[in-house]
Design a binder for these strands. Structure first.
Lengths: 150, 150
DNA sequence: TTACGTGCAAACGTTTTGCACAAAC
DNA sequence: GTTTGTGCAAAACGTTTGCACGTAA
């Protein structure tokens, strides 16, 4: 991680009104530098390996605060597990249905023409306020395609 | 539920190779007749109210078997909770970001022109095998829009 | 009659909480 | 000096499992 990024992390914390504690700094550093979507368990492991161990309670408490302040986003895997992402720009996800890996993607092509209509006649969608159209690409990553051969 | 539906449930179980037990019948009846996406907890509650109580172990065991046989589908809410849906035709979902309600929808417009490209240069998506493009409409249901006013 | 399903209670993995001590401001 | 964060241990939560008994075919 470049020096710039570290300054950015301090700034982000400052701007969000959160104190710049050790826990928050190492969590953000980890997410900022690795191109991955960690589960809480994976974060604990990764931080332990770096010689920056963190207690599980502190991790969960801080992830909740960081999500609340918008510094980190929380996403749900196909299996219901939670993963965290530093990526702030609007984006969608490509998910491996076998191993759960998630890769950030941008959608090519317009979603303008896409709309929803109810499947069941008794549902009325006209009074919903649509905030977002998310596209999830579900597939098999190269590693899992190889594993499926066996 | 019409008599026809009940026969269909028996047939579905027969065709899937699963025995037609009390637990499976009442679970499928509930899902078939209600236009809802139940969490396991909600199913237990609904069945209790109908005078058809079921043990939690049996519910989970059977949901797993029914999903495995394709009679029921399992979906994950925005908050990571599991919900179950009587499996009909392929469809997408409209989800309320405030209360978690899920409504089945069909997408109008083609997804043909929609593709994914990696956000991070180091990700290569060319060797993924894409199985599905899912669209999730996230918004506020009428009830939650009213509640947000306060 | 035999294989399979059910329900209880116990175990499990993940997430949350209460609280004393420590660090940030 | 005051407010906020940390880490431990315990609790809570949703889900799964082992096992004795019951039911479907």
């Amino acid at each position: 991680m470049a020096t710039n990024d570290y300054k950015n992390i301090l700034e982000m914390l400052e701007n969000s009104g959160l104190r710049a504690t050790r826990a928050r700094k190492i969590i953000l550093e980890l997410l900022a530098e690795k191109n991955r979507h960690f589960t809480p368990e994976e974060m604990l492991e990764a931080l332990r390996e770096r010689g920056q161990p963190l207690s599980i309670a502190t991790l969960y408490q801080n992830l909740a605060r960081l999500v609340e302040k918008g510094l980190v986003i929380k996403i749900v895997g196909l299996d219901g597990s939670f993963r965290y992402d530093f990526n702030h720009d609007p984006h969608d996800h490509m998910i491996c249905s076998r191993c759960g890996k998630i890769v950030d993607v941008v959608v090519k092509g317009s979603l303008e023409g896409i709309s929803a209509q109810p499947m069941d006649a008794e549902d009325d969608l006209t009074n919903w306020k649509i905030l977002e159209k998310r596209v999830e690409f579900v597939g098999l990553c190269p590693e899992c395609q190889a594993a499926e051969q066996n």
